[in-house]
């Protein structure tokens, strides 16, 4: 790799220390993000998507802690840099928007006040300039009559408008990375389409990178260049959107793709993944997905599979891939197989 990636996460481990024990919410996550790219993180509820994001921002709950690993922004290590440095990172370099915009807006202040405060905090604009910027941002996110809207309170805004205000606030300081944690989950389909379109056009215009956290595979297909699939705190598969959707290689991802209703499934049975989601307090010894996997082999129950590169656009951590590559090797004994392990992004 010639130039340094914008964001590089290596072997991140984040845990919560609860009375019931250590909850290993993020378990050895590694990836990088290049400038201007949209990276999707999918996975079921509790798989560690938000905790990964909160670890990058270092906004974990008090019981949560980055246990080990490295997070580098533009080459600068962020783990253990201290709160004063993180304060300049948050908002300036990395912004985050959450699922529920109401919880992130203060109901007692006007939208304008909150925007102006955020802009003044993160840039060296004075109040007047910040007000100008606030109006400009509201226009950018298609809020009608921004001069009037800026004097209103959050409750006077609809859900979709609030989410647009949150985007305006997150983008006001032109961050390099926008982390969007389920930004449209609470919104209606037509409003979701507005927000996604807006994010995509702003991303192109401003050249920022986006980490898009969602459990909606449709949103991923529409927005993302690359996709990370998480299961039980680790990345089970990672690759370009096309590889993940058209050539899934991890048994969990395959199951996930099979379980979506499509035009063809109407009137027939869906193919769900059996079993129930994992309990992080009693993780199995082997592959975390093994208890629900219909193809689990003995080795899957014994030890987790390391991440393997399948091609330049695709990595997966599934013993089935090892088995397949061994079978291929047996078929054509002369050809050498290059399965380097533990690499980062494709």
């Amino acid at each position: 790799m010639a130039t340094e990636p914008l964001l590089q996460v290596e072997d991140l481990h984040t845990s919560f220390f609860t009375p019931a024990g250590e909850v290993k919410a993020v378990n050895g996550v590694s990836f990088f993000l290049e400038r201007g790219k949209v990276l999707g993180i999918v996975g079921e509820s509790g798989s560690g998507k938000s905790v990964t994001a909160y670890s990058i921002m270092q906004i974990l709950a008090p019981t949560g802690k980055i246990v080990s690993g490295s997070i580098k922004l533009d080459g600068q290590e962020l783990v253990n840099v201290g709160e004063s440095v993180m304060k300049t990172v948050r908002g300036n370099k990395i912004s985050i928007i959450f699922q529920d915009p109401m919880t992130s807006l203060n109901p007692t202040y006007t939208i304008g006040h909150q925007l102006v405060e955020a802009i003044m905090l993160h840039t060296n604009r004075d109040k007047k300039q910040a007000q100008e910027r606030a109006l400009e941002m509201l226009r950018l996110v298609n809020v009608n009559e921004p001069e009037k809207r800026i004097k209103q309170y959050p409750f006077e805004f609809s859900g979709g408008m609030r989410q647009r205000v949150m985007i305006a606030m997150a983008l006001a300081c032109e961050p390099d990375i926008l982390i969007a944690d389920e930004p449209t989950t609470a919104l209606d389909v037509t409003i979701q389409a507005q927000i996604l379109e807006l994010m995509k056009s702003l991303q192109k215009e401003l050249g920022m990178a986006i980490i898009m956290i969602t459990h909606d595979l449709g949103v991923v297909a529409q927005m993302c260049d690359e996709v990370i699939v998480m299961y039980a705190g680790s990345i089970c598969e990672q690759g370009t959107a096309d590889e993940i959707f058209y050539n899934p290689k991890h048994e969990y991802t395959k199951g996930l793709m099979r379980s979506i209703p499509t035009a063809e499934t109407a009137g027939s049975k869906l193919q769900p993944i059996s079993g129930t989601p994992i309990d992080l307090l009693c993780m199995p010894e082997g592959c975390p997905f093994a208890p629900r996997c219909s193809n689990a082999m003995k080795i899957c129950l014994k030890s987790p599979c390391e991440r393997m590169r399948l091609n330049k656009d695709h990595m997966s951590a599934c013993w089935m891939n090892v088995k397949e590559s061994m079978e291929n090797e047996a078929d054509k004994p002369k050809k050498k197989k290059g399965g380097e392990k533990n690499e980062q992004n494709p």
């Binding site: 079921e44 595979l217 996930l256 379980s259 979506i260 769900p272 993944i273 989601p277």
Partner: peptide, 9 residues
């Protein structure tokens, strides 16, 4: 979640 949703559907 999608996978559980399919079971219930």
């Amino acid at each position: 979640d999608v996978s559980i949703q399919a079971q219930v559907i």
